[in-house]
Design a protein around this nucleic acid. Structure first.
Length: 268
DNA sequence: TAGGCCATCTGGTCCT
DNA sequence: AGGACCAGATGGCCTA
């Protein structure tokens, strides 16, 4: 099994174990609170490039990477000409020569863009850190991270719904609106097609009818309980991703649109 | 060696 | 005007 496929070896038990772990230690939950991530008092983090080179320290919105220090593991920045030198060469190829002020603005814009992307990568790292995954595994790609997060969140929602339901089993009509809406959304993300898209296959008892839950009054817990998330081969995963419209979803708009049209794409 | 993933540069657009 | 955001282009690294 490939490393990526092993990443996808999620089971309900895996996720529930992870959740139980989180619940058993309130401090972990606090650390996992996304509101804390956005706190201006968040500690500085050292961003480490894929080559293991620290390229800057930043707390959210207070990133400060000087042009001189903004080297990274990427070979681009190892150009002896430095960042400014690369400018004249131009990544895009047909870069017009720029005069002093223009060049300075471009250099500043490049630095801002780098910081922005580093912040984005840091956010991805934070997201990866709260997603259950196999130990000593290769890092999830960005695309995989988003897919996994979606599944994880939906699973947590299901668990939460289970807890809430056991606590407040009132008259059917009283807790329908919000709760049921959320459950429908959760189940929607677990539809067979969405699992296939994320490289997960589903299995259910052969006697059970196909799952098309949107607008269906089928009991959520019963249905989710019949879902068994299995690992799949990387080739299947790649194929599915291709069918989804891109190798890594970087064609974003089109693939997301097609997902949305199907009714179970990434929720925005 | 091809394909996947990523970092970076770049120019355009939108927003404040 | 300047910054944030976005998508396209490019090239490097890694793996099957």
């Amino acid at each position: 099994m490939s490393s990526k496929a092993k990443h996808l070896n999620w089971s309900e038990g895996n996720i529930r174990d992870r959740l139980a772990e989180e619940l058993s230690d309130p401090s972990r939950l606090a650390r996992s609170d996304s509101r804390n991530w956005l706190s201006p008092t968040a500690p500085l983090h050292t961003y480490t490039s894929t080559a293991g080179v620290a390229v800057g320290q930043y707390g959210h919105a207070t990133v400060d990477v000087s042009l001189e220090n903004s080297t990274s593991g990427n070979k681009m920045s190892e150009n002896p000409l430095g960042i400014a030198g690369v400018l004249s060469v131009g990544q895009g190829g047909n870069t017009k020569p720029q005069s002093g002020p223009q060049k300075h603005r471009r250099v500043a814009a490049n630095a801002r863009e780098r910081r922005r992307m580093h912040g984005l990568n840091h956010a991805f790292d934070k997201l990866r850190s709260v997603i259950p995954s196999m130990e000593n595994e290769k890092k999830l790609s960005k695309y995989d991270t988003l897919q996994m997060a979606q599944i994880y969140i939906n699973e947590l929602s299901e668990l939460l719904d289970g807890v809430v339901q056991s606590d407040c089993r009132g008259p059917r009509g009283t807790c329908m609106s919000q709760d049921c809406l959320r459950r429908e959304n959760s189940i929607q993300a677990f539809s067979p097609d969405s699992l296939t898209r994320t490289g997960l296959v589903y299995a259910m008892e052969p006697s059970q009818p196909p799952i098309h839950l949107m607008g269906d009054a089928r009991d959520a817990e019963d249905t989710v309980g019949r879902l068994l998330i299995l690992s799949t081969s990387k080739s299947d995963f790649s194929k599915d991703k291709n069918e989804c419209g891109g190798s890594n979803g970087s064609d974003g708009e089109s693939s997301l649109l097609s997902d949305a049209e199907d009714g179970h794409g990434l929720t925005h």
